[in-house]
Amino acid sequence: MKLIVADDSRLVRGIVDKIVTALGFEALHAANGKETLDILENGGISLVLLDWNMPVLNGMDVIKKMRSDDRFKNIPVLMVSTESEEDRIQQVLTAGAQGYLPKPFTPGQLTEAIGRVLPDNSRP
């Protein structure tokens, strides 16, 4: 089962990769929003873990593009970001993300957050 880890930080991608790989996912890495959309084009993605502040195309723009595209509009998105103010979280959820996880996070918190946004029959 494939998911996208989208973060401009190679460090964060590495941390998340270890956690989701241990859960049985295959992680595909994207360093910005455009790379995220490029990977989505290839199909087969079950979940997108998305940073907000990224170069080229930010996380909010990715959500908006996904939700306006019939091919991607039902793929769950979990925003993982340092932006943790209540109005920011509401903004992300209103735009179409299924969940929000503030950084910093523990492996347990990421696992729980993935569990909340991914339907039972979509988990590895």
């Binding site: 930080s9 340092t82 932006e83 503030p102 910093p104």
Partner: peptide, 11 residues
Amino acid sequence: VSEIINMISGT
């Protein structure tokens, strides 16, 4: 180091 200052600022 970039991510650490990002998290300190954001939180």
